[in-house]
């Protein structure tokens, strides 16, 4: 990619994809109150790849869940396409997830009774403008394993199916929570390559949570979390290919 819009925001004003304002989230578990988010302001821009870094419990996943419409903030607002996400009711929220968001989790959450192709078709059947399941799987390098069941795939392959499943609907946002957390480095890198490729080829806004600072090198921006708020936002001038990384 030649253009680096995020280096200089004045150059070619990037369009915001999703915006969070003053997000707080308090969990109450029994007697204890946990402040997972303490006032987070954040905008994800179209086509950028953002890596969220931070220790466990710093609020990364909570933020991602709220952005993806899986959870609601205690206070604050989220805007997507000019609409206030935080005001959506349950069915509008489901609609939002169905049409706009792709999720990838640490534990792939594939449906064991469906083949790779069928797991992807699960999503394309209900999405408005999907790409063909075969094509999505080819993008993640699984064109040869279309008819394998999860039990017949390695962990990395399963995760790539999960990515294919997430992107087959052509989501506007792709949210990945520790996608390589359960994988060895070799498989992890293949998975990251798939994410990077999707980000570049489809222009999907991508947010990726990780513990692994090395992975941050593939990001356009790196956002560090600590204690429920954003500690640092850094633009990455030397974006690397996933295939060049090692840990």
């Amino acid at each position: 990619m030649s253009a680096r819009p995020f280096e200089d925001s004045a150059a070619a004003a990037p369009r915001p994809s999703i915006t969070a304002k003053g997000l707080t989230k308090t969990y109450r578990t029994g007697e204890v109150e946990v402040q997972a988010l303490r006032g987070v302001d954040l905008t994800l821009y179209q086509s950028e790849l953002v890596v969220l870094l931070g220790p466990s419990g710093s609020g990364k996943s909570t933020l991602l869940n709220i952005l993806g419409g899986l959870d609601r903030p205690t206070a604050g607002q989220v805007f997507f396409d000019g609409a206030e996400l935080t005001a959506f009711d349950e069915s509008a929220m489901t609609r939002f997830r169905r049409d706009n968001v792709g999720f990838v989790f640490q534990f792939y959450n594939l449906i064991p009774s469906l083949t790779a192709r069928e797991n992807v078709a699960l999503v394309t059947e209900i999405a408005p403008q999907p790409i063909a399941p075969d094509e999505a799987l080819r993008m993640v390098g699984l064109g040869e394993r279309l008819d394998h069941f999860p039990a017949q795939l390695s962990g990395g392959e399963q995760q790539r199916v999960a990515i294919a499943r997430a992107i087959a609907k052509q989501p506007r946002i792709l949210l990945c929570d520790e996608p390589t957390g359960a994988l060895d480095s070799k498989s992890g890198i293949i998975v990251l390559e798939a994410i990077q490729r999707v980000n570049e080829e489809l222009g999907t806004t991508t947010a990726l949570i990780t513990h692994n600072a090395v992975i941050a090198e593939m990001a356009d921006r790196i956002i560090s979390f600590a204690d429920g708020h954003i500690a640092e936002t850094r633009v990455n001038p030397d974006k690397r290919r996933a295939g060049e990384m090692d840990w």
């Binding site: 489901t94 169905r98 049409d99 968001v101 999720f103 959450n109 449906i111 999503v123 999405a127 609907k169």
Partner: peptide, 14 residues
């Protein structure tokens, strides 16, 4: 439950 929750996340309705 896990499978069903995954589907909900993927945008399936109740």
């Amino acid at each position: 439950g896990r499978e069903l929750a995954t589907l909900r996340v993927l945008g399936f309705s109740r």
